[in-house]
């Protein structure tokens, strides 16, 4: 049995719209990954702690409240503080192009906007996780 890809799907912030997050979680599950879903209203601290305990290789963040510019980079910073900067952080939600650019500068690996086919996310994770582990 090979190394199974484990992904944390989390919703930071106060909005209660988790449909998108659940669709992505399900698509990753159907692609054979183990998806840890943490539910709504997570703080960046909770997300990073869960990612460490669950030993995931990817964190997928979803926010529809407009707080992404603040919350997503906090996750990246906290990962660094915990020596866990090897975990890939992806973002999703309603994120304007300018913001997406800023978030990439802040250390997010990629932003997937509304309407992204889930297969694209699956493939992105597969390719980049393999690169990371040097397989």
């Amino acid at each position: 049995m090979g190394r199974k890809i484990r992904v944390l799907i989390a919703k930071p912030g106060l909005d209660g719209h988790d449909r998108g997050a659940k669709v992505v979680a399900r698509a990753l599950r159907d692609a054979g990954m183990e998806v840890i879903y943490t539910g709504l209203h997570q703080t960046p601290e909770q997300i990073v702690e869960a990612a460490i305990q669950e030993d995931v290789v990817v964190i997928g963040l979803s926010a529809l409240s407009g707080a992404h510019l603040e919350l997503f980079p906090q996750v990246v910073d906290l990962l660094e503080e915990n020596n866990a900067e090897d975990i890939i952080v992806l973002g999703g939600g309603i994120i304007p192009d300018d913001d997406a650019e800023k978030l990439r500068e802040e250390g997010l690996a990629k932003i997937f906007g509304p309407g992204t086919p889930t297969q694209e996310i699956v493939e992105y994770i597969r390719e980049n996780v393999e690169l990371e582990s040097g397989e």
Partner: peptide, 26 residues
């Protein structure tokens, strides 16, 4: 069929998930 899993028990464990004396693994 796919070998994938959706591990969702943490959703109900938010009250303790940040305590340093707790370690949760799904």
């Amino acid at each position: 069929f796919t070998g994938g899993a959706l591990l969702g028990d943490r959703v109900r464990m938010n009250e303790v998930s940040l305590d340093e004396d707790v370690f949760i693994r799904s």
